[in-house]
Design a protein around this nucleic acid. Structure first.
Lengths: 107, 107
DNA sequence: TCAATTAGTCAGAAAAACATGACTATTAAA
DNA sequence: TTTAATAGTCATGTTTTTCTGACTAATTGA
C-alpha cells in the first residue's frame, strides 16, 4: 500500500469519494465485499447494467487498486476480481455509509 | 429528520455517495463544516469554479437537505447556507474519508 | 462441426454534467 | 446618478459519462 500525499490537497475527501463514484461502482464494490466477482455474473446480477460500463468500472477499480484481477488457468480458464488490501481498508467506511442510509434517508 | 427506507435498495451506500458527488460538492461541504457559507464567497474561495455550477450545487445540497438556506433580512440583506442536522450527521463519515485519504493514497 | 459461454473491445450515439457569457433585481456607496 | 456588489437565472456550447450494437477470441458441449 502506498503512502504519499493526496493530489486533491484542497479537499482530501474528494478523491476517495471519486473512487467510488460512477453509476455502477458502488454496486460492484458491495458485491465484491461478499467474495470474488466475475464479469458475466455482474452483468446478470446488476440489472440495467451493460458490458461496456461494467468493463470500464472493473478496469478503473483495478487501476485504483481496489480490486485485483486474477486469471485462473484451470480447465475452463476464467477471470475473477478480488478485493485488494486497499479495497478492504474501505470496508468500514462503506459499512458506515450503509448504516447512515439505513438510519436516515437523504433523498 | 426523516426516517424511511432508501430508494436505492440494492445498494444503500450508493445514494449517500451520490449526494456528495459532483465536481464541487465535496469542497462546498468541507467549507460549510467551518461555518455559514455564501454564494460569492464560495465563488472566490473555490478556484476554477463558476456561478452556474456553484448555484446548482448549492440548490442540490439544499434539496438533499444537507444545507439550509437562510435569508438574512438585515440592512444589506444577504443569504447564507448552513449545515442542517442531516448535514451534521455526515461529519463523522466525512472526517473518516479525510483521514483515510491522509493515510493512504488511492490514486 | 455448430452453437453457446466467457470475457471482453470498438465505434458511434445519446444523455448527463459542467462551463461561458449575457442578463436581471436589489441595495449601497461615491 | 453612475458604479459596484450580492445572488442569482437563462440560453447555449463543450466535455464527460454512459449506453447500444456489432464484433473478436478462446474454450466447451452436443
Amino acid at each position: 500500500m502506498e503512502f504519499k500525499t493526496a493530489s486533491t490537497d484542497g479537499c482530501p475527501a474528494e478523491h476517495l469519494l471519486k473512487t467510488l463514484s460512477g453509476k455502477w461502482k458502488p454496486q460492484i464494490f458491495r458485491i465484491a465485499l461478499e467474495g470474488p466477482i466475475r464479469f458475466n455474473l455482474l452483468l446478470r446480477q446488476i440489472e440495467g447494467s451493460n458490458k461496456q460500463s461494467i468493463s470500464v468500472a472493473l478496469r478503473e477499480l483495478e487501476e485504483q487498486e481496489l480490486l485485483e484481477k486474477v486469471i485462473i488457468k484451470q480447465k475452463p480458464l476464467h477471470i475473477e476480481y478480488n478485493l485488494s488490501e486497499k479495497g478492504k481498508s474501505l470496508i468500514p467506511i462503506f459499512r458506515q455509509l450503509e448504516f447512515l442510509s439505513h438510519e436516515q434517508v437523504l433523498n
